[in-house]
Amino acid sequence: MERNMTRIALFAALIAALGLIPSLTLAFGVPITAQSMGVMLAGAILGAKRGALAVLLFMALVALGLPLLAGGRGGLGAFVAPTSGFFLGWPVAAFVTGLIVERLRSGPLAVTVALASIIGGIVVMYAFGIVGMSMALDKTLAECTLLVTAFIPGDIIKAVLTGLITQALARSRPAALLSRS
């Protein structure tokens, strides 16, 4: 019980800490932050349920008014901005990522996790993000999809990194991989 709770709190903190890393700018001037990688890692390492709880805990802290989102943003505004759909999709993204890592046990871990992160952390997260954006900006889903495509390459890099990091962690701390225990 205590152990689960500290790990959930730890991953919520990891998502916060990753938001403090200065964002990288890709070739086309698209900023990518490490924060959504934290969401993928939470799902991949903690598994579906605990991963989603870690993300929810992080979101609660943002709602309480802490500037934990990349760029020092936070507060209730994070839930009504044009990009809030992505944010609201985070717990589902972590859950789906975790679920896939839990269920898909054949094949190399790095590949499975990268794949899970692409499905959970990109497909699912973008579905939420695009719906939210289309509501906020009053545009069609297709138009919004077009708007966000520039961010997909950056997120694919993050999914691959999530796979590599999870594999390295599984080697150095096999017991830490709750999604496979």
Partner: peptide, 13 residues
């Protein structure tokens, strides 16, 4: 858990 996140974040950084 909320208190712990506030404790862990600067520690992680």
């Amino acid at each position: 858990a909320i208190a712990m996140v506030l404790r862990f974040t600067p520690m992680l950084v």
